[in-house]
Nucleic acid binder design. Structure first.
Lengths: 131, 131
DNA sequence: CTTGACGTTGACGTAAACGTAAAGCATGAT
DNA sequence: ATCATGCTTTACGTTTACGTCAACGTCAAG
């Protein structure tokens, strides 16, 4: 932070990178790909709360294994203009696609967790037999 | 398939690739990394049910965004010898680590789905206001 | 026996997601 | 004034996960 609470808080690239546990190079890479677009004060980048929100979404997307390009289309969706009916219907369509994808992943994860639990049970059985 | 049901069924590389919707190059790549090791009949690869099980696990791991190297350590875990107590305890440890990872992903996905639902609700509101 | 259809091993190419110097501004501290 | 810090761009390097030839083996069909 920088401001002393007189107006909206802002951050430097080092601060956001630190806070999110990534390098400044990573943050700039996301900017190169158009995932974030911080304000410029002269030559320096100035990050606002909006940028941090986006960064959070990006990193969660990454934890879920989405490619950055796809992540961009998703978070752009959230900021898309939703004035006209056609726009809204398009957005709702996209939402459905995304959800289908997420549902598949949810099933995959639940299956994996279940299998892991089953495997653990067998291991504990084996361990008991050794006792 | 090849056998005519007199013994255990086997498959060629083209068959498994086709069935799992990947290329033969992909299948061989997984073999190069030691994720599967099909039998050799002369120079040809012969895939058994075991290999297909592994391939299934690999592809699910991929859908979940795990790197192939990590996937290998995981599925190797399932086939690891569990004779000695130390081995079993090591395996149980690994299981815990894996589960922590999967739990994080589960939360991420649930959050993402929830946010998507909330976003859809807002979009539908906007759409109603236009009616 | 030659032609395909499928299989094999290299080996190089490529896209994504950064890492890693190199070299130049900008600004406050000494 | 200069010196150290931190930020900037430019650009080439690296890893992962395959794609894409090239060049050759093999085996049943015509």
């Amino acid at each position: 932070m920088i401001d002393g609470m007189t107006s909206a808080p802002t951050w430097t690239i080092a601060e956001v990178a630190d806070e999110f546990g990534v390098t400044h190079r990573t943050v700039r890479h996301y900017e190169d790909l158009g995932l974030i677009s911080p304000e410029r004060r002269g030559t320096q980048r100035v990050y606002h709360r909006r940028d941090r929100t986006r960064l959070g979404l990006i990193l969660r997307g990454k934890r879920l294994g989405f490619p950055l390009e796809e992540i961009r289309t998703i978070i752009d969706l959230f900021d898309a203009p939703r004035g006209r009916r056609t726009q809204l219907e398009y957005v709702l369509d996209q939402i459905d696609e995304r959800r289908a994808d997420l549902d598949q992943r949810l099933r995959d994860i639940q299956d994996a967790i279940a299998e892991l639990g089953e495997f653990e049970r067998r291991c504990r059985e084996d361990l008991d037999k050794l006792a």
